[in-house]
Nucleic acid binder design. Structure first.
Lengths: 240, 240
DNA sequence: CCCAAACTGTAAACCGGTTTACATTCTTAT
DNA sequence: ATAAGAATGTAAACCGGTTTACAGTTTGGG
């Protein structure tokens, strides 16, 4: 049930015109993290913008029983830290690297200065935040309305579109974490998909065996409009 | 399960310095709607900013069975239409007036011009969108983690804080719609609260009988930090 | 004043997820 | 080659919600 901020959703990198991107990155310090390395804690007071150059960052919180619950995964091209930049909040989530990860970090002071010099940066941020809000609301709506056997199929189609290849390398446990459900629930749905001939499950991943059939079947739950990458939904954001 | 964009969350009106507020409202056309009157449809192409002066607007979508599902309720002081302003999207939700409602409507052309003349407006919008995102994520987190008997209590406390008085005038059906659950589920929780002495249920509403006890009991589920109005959470946004 | 409409209370059957448990299969390191 | 670890498959008991149903209560309009 965590939001994956990717799958065709444009990130800051994609939205910035290249000149501005160059200036912004020039202000940044590169930070390197190894897989699973801790990046930030809920409550931290560091203020600044982080841009993910490679790898991914997993955000979440520890619940009262001490278990980590994923809220969102941000992949390369996405940025985070707006809460500290625009609302003066402390970090609201714990974050760790998902795979070896490189981050460009821009301090709040430097970011604010660039924001003064380049009003277009503010505009772009308005767009970015709006897009995220839209994406979040769509995803939330799916969550309310549709059962796992719809949401998982939709997610798999998006993953495949993102990956390009037919093979999706992810364990059922990780899938469960992303969808916010247990491994068992994922396995049940995949068993059903397997019987229907939609997927082939292999050790440590799966393949979409019949994409068209899966897409059709998902269509019986809901219009599958938004399974396509999201970019075409944002006509205002042609190039970046 | 719909988001109520209020309960101490600052809206555009609260964030704008008064001079800018005056300028913005001067650009607006007032629109009046009666209770339950239709305001917009998903897919509409009108672009502009709407500021709720009084009343409230309920947003949602019709699902495949034709039932309306509420996604969010915006109250006086809040604005909407950012998706059309910043991302060029058509309206993503149906909207209708909840109570007699007056809206200040600013066309995209006029808004864009003001945005050019007043860079601070863009900054304020960055803050506003950030706050909303934060609020949404918090709320989503509650939704994942905690059962209705926690969420409903928290919502009632917020409603009471907002209303000021002890009496909360809302039917159980409407409560269910807000919480995104059935009326029966609400009634079950309220029956339990009644037995525990937290609330008194009356026709068409309820009263918090023992706020301290309710708050304590909710504290056994989770730290109740965010039940207080949200404004103090945003130190960067002192005055507006 | 009374009836219709709106609202509340509660029960029963159901459903989609959870947790726990355990057997099985696949991979990798030694 | 094999043992250990990781991942999958599946079943059972459980739980928090849903839907449906119906009876009882309150309110407001004619």
């Amino acid at each position: 049930m965590s939001v994956i901020f990717n799958y065709g959703m444009p990130g800051l990198i994609a939205l910035l015109p290249s000149a501005l991107r160059t200036r912004l990155v020039a202000l940044a310090v590169p930070l390197r993290y190894r897989d699973k390395q801790h990046i930030q804690s809920r409550g931290d007071r560091t203020q600044g913008l982080s841009i993910i150059q490679s790898g991914a960052v997993c955000f979440g919180k520890v619940d009262s029983e001490g278990r980590f619950m994923t809220a969102a995964v941000f992949e390369a091209g996405q940025c985070y830290g707006e809460f500290t930049l625009f609302a003066g909040l402390p970090r609201t989530h714990d974050g760790y690297a998902e795979g070896d990860t490189v981050i460009s970090y821009v301090s709040k002071a430097r970011f604010d200065q660039l924001l003064d010099e380049e009003p277009s940066l503010g505009r772009i941020y308005n767009s970015l935040l709006t897009i995220r809000m839209h994406y979040l609301l769509e995803w939330l709506d799916d969550l309310r309305r549709y059962p796992l056997k719809y949401r998982l199929g939709k997610t798999l189609l998006m993953m495949q579109a993102e990956a390009g290849t037919g093979r999706i390398d992810i364990t059922q446990g990780a899938l469960g974490e992303i969808m916010g459900v247990s491994r068992v629930a994922v396995a049940k749905v995949l068993a059903d998909y397997r019987r229907r001939g939609f997927v082939r499950v292999v050790y440590g991943g799966l393949e979409i065996a019949d994409e068209a059939a899966l897409r059709d079947w998902l269509g019986t739950f809901a219009a599958v409009e938004s399974i396509a990458p999201l970019v075409p939904l944002f006509p205002a954001l042609g190039q970046g």
